[in-house]
Structure formats: structure tokens, C-alpha cells
């Protein structure tokens, strides 16, 4: 099958790849762009481990063709924050022990990032609804909910406070 040449923005950088039409976005991210933070946890679009942001919206990268992402802006866990410059969600997952094996974590954090964009002050019920498409087998979700709640609080404070270096 002829490969297609596509260009898109990934984590703020212009990237290009040659992919088969059947290549899933998650495969392109992991195999071609070597961004292995996005994981595959199932084959039926149920688990959410592959969640990334496409043009700011959480999507399952296992349920989108790479060609469908052409000219979009994709954010993966690697683009959300890195050690030393963690996103408040990453920091809160760390502080609140919101992960154990870590496999579902990138997708979970990206789904939570989508929630943060729409709802700066989510209730626990809203948090649980927002991550209903992401399965975690380790934590029982207890500390994940606590982490998202904490991150929302930190982000609200950050938004309310005048810009400082703090």
C-alpha cells in the first residue's frame, strides 16, 4: 500500500511522516515519531491509555487514522510538561500518588487536561465522568480523583493570581 506523506504539529513542533493509510495515529506517534509516552492498552477503543489532545480536544489516538490528523496540532504527554517544568496535572499526580504502574497515566492525564479546559472547578462526580473513558487497574481511581481535584485547585490559583515567577 502506497504510503502518504503527512505533516502535523506535535507538541509545538512541525513533524512529518510517511504512513500507510491504515496507520493509526497512536502508531505514528509511537513508531514514527518515537513518542512512546502514549500507550496502547486495548484493541477495542475502551481503555483510553492512548488519549492525546488533537486541536485541544482529548481523543483516543488508537481510534483515529494518522492521515486524519494531518495539519492538526497534537499534544502528547511529552508535550504537556517535562521533569523540571511539570504541568500542574503531572505535579498533582505525583504529589497525590495518582499512579502506580504508570501505564494508564499519560492517557489519564490527557483526559483530565481536556476537563480542565472546560471546567476549572470540577466536582468529584464531574471528574469521575470526565475520566470514564480511561481505565486504571491499579489505583481504584481514588488518588486519581484526588490528583485532578488538586490540579484544578492549583490551576485556579494560578489563573487568579497576577503573573509572578512563583
Amino acid at each position: 500500500m502506497a504510503e502518504l506523506h503527512i505533516a502535523l504539529e506535535v507538541n509545538g513542533e512541525q513533524r512529518e511522516a510517511d504512513v500507510e493509510p491504515r496507520t493509526l495515529l497512536v502508531s505514528m506517534l509511537r513508531e514514527d515519531l518515537e513518542l512512546t509516552g502514549t500507550h496502547v492498552g486495548c484493541d477495542t477503543s475502551q481503555c483510553g491509555a492512548c488519549t492525546v489532545l488533537v486541536d485541544g480536544h482529548a481523543v483516543k489516538s488508537c481510534t483515529m487514522l494518522a492521515v486524519q490528523a494531518e495539519h492538526t496540532a497534537v499534544t502528547t504527554i511529552e508535550g504537556l510538561g517535562q521533569p523540571g517544568s511539570l504541568h500542574p496535572l503531572q505535579q498533582a499526580f505525583w504529589d497525590k500518588h495518582g499512579l502506580q504502574c504508570g501505564f494508564c497515566t499519560p492517557g489519564m492525564i490527557m483526559a483530565a487536561a481536556d476537563l480542565m479546559a472546560h471546567n476549572p472547578e470540577p466536582t468529584d462526580t464531574e471528574i469521575r465522568h470526565a475520566i470514564a473513558g480511561n481505565i486504571c487497574r491499579c489505583t481504584g481511581y481514588h488518588n486519581i480523583v484526588a490528583a485532578v481535584r488538586e490540579a484544578a485547585s492549583v490551576m485556579r490559583e494560578g489563573a487568579a493570581a497576577p503573573a509572578t515567577n512563583a
Binding site: 477503543s45 483510553g48 488519549t51 488533537v54 480536544h57 482529548a58 481523543v59 483516543k60 481510534t63 483515529m64 483526559a111 481536556d114 476537563l115 465522568h129 470526565a130 470514564a132 473513558g133 480511561n134
Partner: peptide, 12 residues
């Protein structure tokens, strides 16, 4: 709408 699948599916 909220009863349909999950956030990711509803986004796409």
C-alpha cells in the same frame, strides 16, 4: 449525549 461512550468519543 453524556450517556454516549466517553469524552474522547464525544469529541470526535
Amino acid at each position: 449525549v453524556p450517556a454516549i461512550a466517553d469524552v474522547q468519543v464525544r469529541n470526535r
